[in-house]
Design a protein around this nucleic acid. Sequence first.
DNA 1: TTGCTCCTCACGTCACGTGAGGTGGC
DNA 2: TTGCTCCTCACGTCACGTGAGGTGGC
Lengths: 340, 340
Amino acid sequence: MTDTLLKVGELARRTGMTVRMLHHYDAIGLLRPSAHSEAGYRLYNRNDVARLHAIQALRQIGLPLNEVGNLLSGEPEPLPRIVQRQITALEHQIEQANELCGRLRLLQSRLADGVEPNMQEWLSMLSAMSAYGKYFTADELKKIFENWKATEPQWQQLIAEIRAAMKHGLDPESMQMQPLARRWMDLSVRWMQGDYELMKRWEKMYLHEPAAKGRNGVETELIHYINKAVDLRVAAWLKYFTADELEQLNVELADEWEALAACIRKLINRKASLTGKPVRELFSRLDDLTERTVRHDARLKKKFTHAQATDPVLQAGSFFTKEMQEFLWRAWNANNPQSN
Amino acid sequence: MTDTLLKVGELARRTGMTVRMLHHYDAIGLLRPSAHSEAGYRLYNRNDVARLHAIQALRQIGLPLNEVGNLLSGEPEPLPRIVQRQITALEHQIEQANELCGRLRLLQSRLADGVEPNMQEWLSMLSAMSAYGKYFTADELKKIFENWKATEPQWQQLIAEIRAAMKHGLDPESMQMQPLARRWMDLSVRWMQGDYELMKRWEKMYLHEPAAKGRNGVETELIHYINKAVDLRVAAWLKYFTADELEQLNVELADEWEALAACIRKLINRKASLTGKPVRELFSRLDDLTERTVRHDARLKKKFTHAQATDPVLQAGSFFTKEMQEFLWRAWNANNPQSN
DNA sequence: TTGCTCCTCACGTCACGTGAGGTGGC
DNA sequence: TTGCTCCTCACGTCACGTGAGGTGGC
C-alpha cells in the first residue's frame, strides 16, 4: 500500500485544524512534515498524521505546546502524573471561578432587593465585595448577608445610640456604656449565629480593609469606641470565668432575659408583695433561665450567680436595672430568711 | 487639607499594584496621573486613587481593561447587565472545566484498575476520551464505563462468535445469525441500562470517530455485519408491533428466558410426559414471563404470542431452539385438545 | 486563462514582566 | 558620593488570526 501524502489543506480539513496552526507547529518544530514537494509544499505522511492526533489528544487535556513537544520526544515525566497535575489545576480553577461567581450572584441579589444604585454606589459595592472575598468564602458571605437583613433594624438603632453617646463625650469605659456593650455583644452573636471566629474575622476585615465600609458604613472610631466598653465587659467576665467557660455560656437568650426584665418592672410598678406567688414564680423563671444560660452546669451556675451579684461592671451591663436588682435582692431575702 | 500627591512607587505599594501596571494604565490612557513633577515623575492625587480603586474593583469581576475604560468614561451599558454577563460566562467556564476534569478523572480511574499502559496506549486512550467527550457528558461516560465492566466478558464471548461467523462467510441475514442478533440486542440494552437514545449515540460515535475505537476496539465491519442481522430482527418485530409498542416491551428478562429454555431442554431430555405436572408448571412459568415481558398488556400479549408462533425470523432468533418450540407445540395441543 | 491551494513574511492580540540605560532627590 | 526611586524604550509571553504579496498545479 502506497503511503498517502497529504498537503496542509487536506490534513487541516481532516483533523479540524487550521492551516495556520499546522504552519505554526511546523515553525516551532512540533510537527514537521516528513517531506516537501518540489514546489515546497508540505507533505504529511501516515506517521505525521498519527503524531498530529497525539498532539490533539494532549492539547485536549490542557497541556501547552512545549509540554506536548517534550512528551512526544520521550520526556521522562509519566503521563499519569501529568494528568494528575491537570486535574489539580482544574480543580483549583473551578474553585476560584465558583467563588467569584458566588460573590457576583450575591451582588446581583443585593441589587435585586434594594433601590437601583448609581455608578458610585455600584463601584463601592464591588470594592466591598472584593474586600470581603479576601476574608470570606461566598457561602460564608451569603449567610452573613442573610442574617444581616434580619438584624439590621436593631443595628441601626444601637449604632445611633452609640453615636449619640460618643458625641456627648461619654467615656466608653463608664458604667453607662455597659448596657450598650451588652447589646452590641448580643447582636454580634445573633448576626454571626454564635460563630466567634467569624465575628473576629469580620472585625479584622472591617478595620483593615477601607473598601469594606462601603459608602455608608459605620465609622472606624465608633468601632474602637464601643470596643473599649466591650473589652471592659469581657475583662469583667474573665475575672470569674476562663475563656473556655465563657464560650460555653448560651448567649442566645437575650430576648428571654429582656422579657424577664419587663416582668420585674411590672411587679415593681404594681408594688407586688415580695413573698407573693407572682414573685415566687419570677424566681422560678429566673432560675430556669439561669440554668439554660449555663447549660445546666452546676459549677458554672454558681460562678455566674456570684459574678452577677458581685461585679459592678456586670451589674451595670445587666438586663436588669439597679432598681430591679435591688427588688430581686429584697425579694430573695424575704423568701429565704434563714440564709445569709 | 492639602491634597496629598503620590508617586508611582507609593501608590503601587498602597494598592498592591506593580509600578509597571501603573505605567501600563498610563500608556493606554486608563489612568493618567493628574500631575507631573518638574523631573517628569507621575503624581497621583486623591481622585486618581479613587479611579484606581474603581479599576481594581472592575478588574476583580473579570472585565478586560478596555471595558473597564469604557465603563469609567460613562459608557451607557449598565453594570447589572455586565455582572450578569460575567456570571453567565463564568458558569459556562465552570461547566467546561468540570466536564474536562470529569473525563480526566475517568481516565485516571481506568488506569488505576488496569495494567500500566505504555505511551501509545495512553495516547489512544486520550484520543478516545476526547472523542467520547464530543458525544457524552462525563457523567454519562462514567455510567457507561461502569456498566461496561459488568458486561465485558459476555461482550468478548459474543464478539468472538460473531467474528467467527463473519470469517466463515456466513450471510448476516441468514437465520443462523438471529440468535447472535438477539444476544447483541439484549447485551446492548443491559449495557446502556435500557436507554435507547444512549445506544444510538454510542453507535453513531463509534462509527464516526476513528479515535473512539482505541487500540483493540471492534472492527467497524463487524458492527456493520451484526447490524444487518439486527436490522432483520427489528424489521420482523415491526411487522407485528409499532415502534412505540416495541419500546414498551420489557427487554431485561433475558436471563429468565434463558433459564426457561434450559428447563425445557431438561424436560425433553428426560422425555417427560406432555401432560404431566412439570409441563403444566412450565406453561405457567411461560405465561408469567410473557405477562411480564408485555408488562401485563393483554393486547401486546396477544400480538407477542402471535408473532412468536408465526414469524420465521423471530423463531430463528428465539431463546428456544426449533426442537423446544416443537415440544411446546405438541405439549400445548396435548393439554388443550378442544382448541384449534 | 481562471480559480484554488500553496508559500513566506510580518503584524496584532492581552496585560503586563523583565531588563537596559539613564536621570533626579536626599 | 551612595542608594533609592523615578524615567523611557523595547523585547518577550502564548497560540495562533489575519492580511500582504507572490507562486504552483489543474
